[in-house]
Write a protein that binds this DNA or RNA. Structure first.
Lengths: 148, 148
DNA sequence: ATAAATGCAAAGGGTTTGCAAAGGC
DNA sequence: GCCTTTGCAAACCCTTTGCATTTAT
């Protein structure tokens, strides 16, 4: 069921690296690569089960590792105590806005901000490698829907 | 041993809240409030032991919770898989630069950056509450001391 | 047929909790 | 003395690992 181009790319990656193309790997890749959200490992497993392709926890983590190595998936840390994963889209780098009420995550890109991190790092003698910015706030919907 | 004003303030906080002033709480507060570094819970326990005032792990965590509630300590997450804590200084908010070689942490403040996070959040309908920025790079010392 | 992936369960690291014993107030 | 804190160990959550079994190639 390589109905999504990204899944097909993952199959290509597996073939190139002489890694068996298993039903589990396809199921996990399909869930993660077609997701619009930032999924936790557990959510990936649940969604796979929901689609009738149940997979073990260890396999989820191992396959996510492979997906990370392939570069098709990136990991995020929103300080929740666990990691989330999302398909690597064409966006080179983006920041995250997290709603403290409903948990919704929005992404944005800001080049000025990016440039500033480099400048700030250099002004303190650091050779910048990467950065992580998460802004917490209340999203429009939660602001409108009363105070709760 | 309230030799540090911040420790004295913690004692005040405990009194105000009718919380017993125990030797353990003083020991933990003393370690954490006088530290120049960002300590992990384990490092707090080790340092307390080193000062001859050994405390249990659970007590370290519970006391850190109290210190967080008092506002005298703030928590940080550098994506290491555990939290670090530092005394809340007068600095209203500051960002962190982390060296990926030696682990050194430098702090800085940048108002322009701060303003930008508010603007970006608002432009997407978010009421900004707070943000977290960590820049990873290689510090001057590590750049100079060869390539390793 | 071979070498690797799977699933389970156990282990691992950081943190929290339950409870009897110790200790402020 | 009452009530909270303490320390220990067990429990907890997320993640990794060991190993016998299944599976892709």
């Amino acid at each position: 069921m390589p109905d999504h181009p990204a899944v097909a790319r993952f199959v290509g990656y597996l073939r190139e690296h002489n890694l068996p193309v298993t039903a589990q790997r396809l199921a996990i890749a399909d869930v993660l690569l077609t997701s619009e959200r930032h999924l936790s490992a557990e959510e990936v497993a649940l969604e796979a089960t929901a689609r009738g392709r149940s997979v073990g926890t260890a396999t989820v983590y191992r396959t996510i590792d492979t997906l990370l190595e392939s570069g098709l998936v990136v990991e995020r840390d929103f300080g929740e105590g666990f990691r989330r994963f999302e398909p690597a889209r064409d966006i080179p780098h983006h920041e995250h806005l997290v709603c403290t009420q409903c948990g919704r995550v929005e992404e944005f890109r800001d080049e000025r901000l990016e440039r500033m991190t480099t400048i700030v790092a250099e002004s303190r003698g650091f050779a910048r490698q990467r950065h992580r910015l998460v802004i917490h706030g209340i999203c429009r919907d939660c602001q409108t829907q009363g105070h709760r």
